[in-house]
């Protein structure tokens, strides 16, 4: 099948730097204003108050975090707000040495999926761990939210600065 591979022209990064090939750059002007919606609007407002709120479905009994106004399993509206703990269990984590644009970090960020107490099993949220030696992080570790001071909260998931070991 060798003859069925077209000999396409690969370029080096230098070909661009030295302008050996013609190219154009384009900066897309894409800015968005998203409506938070009902469930997430409430979730963010509660975070500002230092609380984590979920939503309960009476049919399957699940408490969902972040909250949703409908249950995707039962396909019906959820029934009530339900506060959950700011304490939970690390389900998985990573030690990340690169930023979103692939700039290198000397100290790793520690993203984790955390199951919060009071939410249904497997209803993890993504957040970051802090105030911990990266070598000491373990799956199954118990952690608690470290909240920003009330004056610094804006109604954002980052109102929780990070989770630290209990």
């Amino acid at each position: 099948m060798e003859h069925l591979v077209y000999p396409s022209k690969g370029l080096s990064e230098q070909a661009f730097e030295k302008r050996e090939v013609l190219f154009e750059t384009w900066h897309v002007k894409a800015e968005y204003a998203w409506d938070t919606g009902v469930a997430i609007g409430k979730y963010l407002a509660e975070l500002k108050e230092g609380r984590i709120v979920g939503r309960r479905c009476f049919k399957c009994k699940r408490v969902m975090v972040p909250p949703r106004m409908f249950c995707e399993h039962c396909f019906r509206p959820t029934d009530e707000w339900a506060y959950v703990q700011d304490i939970g269990t690390v389900k998985t984590f990573s030690l990340c040495y690169v930023r979103w644009d692939m700039v290198r970090l000397t100290e790793p960020e520690i993203p984790a999926v955390i199951d919060l107490d009071g939410a249904s099993r497997g209803m993890g949220i993504m957040h970051k761990l802090g105030a911990v030696d990266s070598r000491a992080v373990k799956i199954g570790m118990r952690v608690q939210a470290v909240w920003k001071p009330p004056a610094e909260r804006t109604g954002s998931i980052t109102d929780i600065a990070y989770f630290k070991p209990l």
Binding site: T36, C96, R99, W100, M126, I157
Partner: peptide
């Protein structure tokens, strides 16, 4: 709302 503010990247 609930994740991007944390500055995630796909590798996470």
């Amino acid at each position: 709302f609930t994740e991007r503010a944390l500055g995630p990247n796909l590798l996470w």
